[in-house]
């Protein structure tokens, strides 16, 4: 009995080690090549990098990608802040306030969860052009904020609806405005869910590729996703700096993830389950 338990546990660990290693193979390859010279990559593909490591690859990659990374941080950061702000005030209105046509508006926002973004791609392009935001960062941010509203409002409204009514009632009797109640009472009690919604949003916008590919023209404005694709066609065969650039593309999210993993994980599961 005891031995079979140990055997089973060993087998599980062995399988997991295999699966885990396999999942990380592309990352190992990228890391390995990012420290090698072109000759090393050519002749000894599987060997570990020779000492001293070729750190020039990272210097070059940084020169190529830092503007793209900054653009992504700016666009994703601002989008997340705006999304969470207008999504949370709307979430508060839908959760706690009475107004004529509330159910209708809420339903109209939620039903958008079912509409794929590819369907609105072309008219959105024409609209952005007509609004004069095409080829600007606002042309990314505003559609991102709008696209994120259904899920953000859904998540936040659900949380706000569970908060005790007495708190809000007490503030109303004291003559607080609805915005003050939202800002002073609701928001401080909802920090975790708001952070979760924000992170979920950062992750979604960070990965956007098609829209920035068509909605931007100027190379200096591109986010990292489009930037990497451009680099991969410009640096064909020059794997060292290219792989270093791929590694750098994951660093901002890695840093964010290290501090907020709990929220990330919850956001992913709750976000998906409710779609």
């Amino acid at each position: 009995m005891r031995r079979s338990v140990i055997a089973a546990e060993t087998l599980k660990i062995a399988l997991l080690v295999f699966l885990g290693a396999a999942a990380w193979v592309p990352v190992f390859l990228a890391l390995n090549m990012s420290f090698k010279t072109p000759a090393e990559i050519m002749r000894q593909y599987w060997a570990l990098p020779a000492w001293p490591l070729r750190l020039e690859n990272y210097r070059d990659a940084w020169v190529y990608t830092h503007q793209y990374l900054l653009n992504s941080i700016y666009v994703s950061g601002l989008s997340a802040l705006l999304t969470v702000f207008i999504g949370s005030i709307a979430g508060y209105a839908f959760a706690r306030l009475r107004f004529v046509g509330k159910g209708l508006f809420f339903g109209a926002v939620l039903v958008l969860l079912l509409i794929p973004t590819v369907v609105t791609l072309i008219p959105r392009f024409v609209l952005a052009r007509d609004l004069g935001i095409l080829y600007t960062h606002w042309g990314l941010i505003l559609p991102y904020v709008a696209a994120a509203q259904p899920l953000t409002i859904f998540l936040l409204r659900g949380f706000f609806a569970q908060l005790p009514e007495e708190l809000i009632e007490a503030a109303r009797i004291d003559g607080a405005s609805e915005f003050t109640i939202y800002y002073r009472i609701i928001l401080p009690l909802s920090v975790p869910i708001v952070v979760t919604a924000g992170l979920l949003n950062v992750q979604t916008t960070w990965n956007q590729f098609i829209w920035p590919l068509i909605a931007l023209r100027d190379d200096s404005m591109r986010p990292i996703t489009v930037g990497l694709q451009v680099l991969s066609s410009e640096l064909v065969g020059d794997y060292g700096p290219l792989m270093a650039a791929y590694v750098l593309s994951a660093v901002p999210m890695l840093i964010l993830f290290m501090f907020t993993m709990r929220y990330f994980v919850r956001g992913l599961t709750s976000g998906a389950l409710k779609q």
Binding site: I86, G87, I89, A90, Y92, A93, F94, L97, R98, F99, K102, F105, A108, V109, L112, I115, T120, R124, L127, L142, P143, V145, A146, A147, Q149, P150, I153, S177, E178, F179, Y182
Partner: peptide, 18 residues
């Protein structure tokens, strides 16, 4: 108050989704 707080989100989805 309800309309005011819901307006930005509703406006955003009307313009960029609907």
């Amino acid at each position: 108050p309800g309309y005011t707080l819901a307006l930005p989100a509703v406006l955003a989805v009307v313009i960029f989704s609907y």
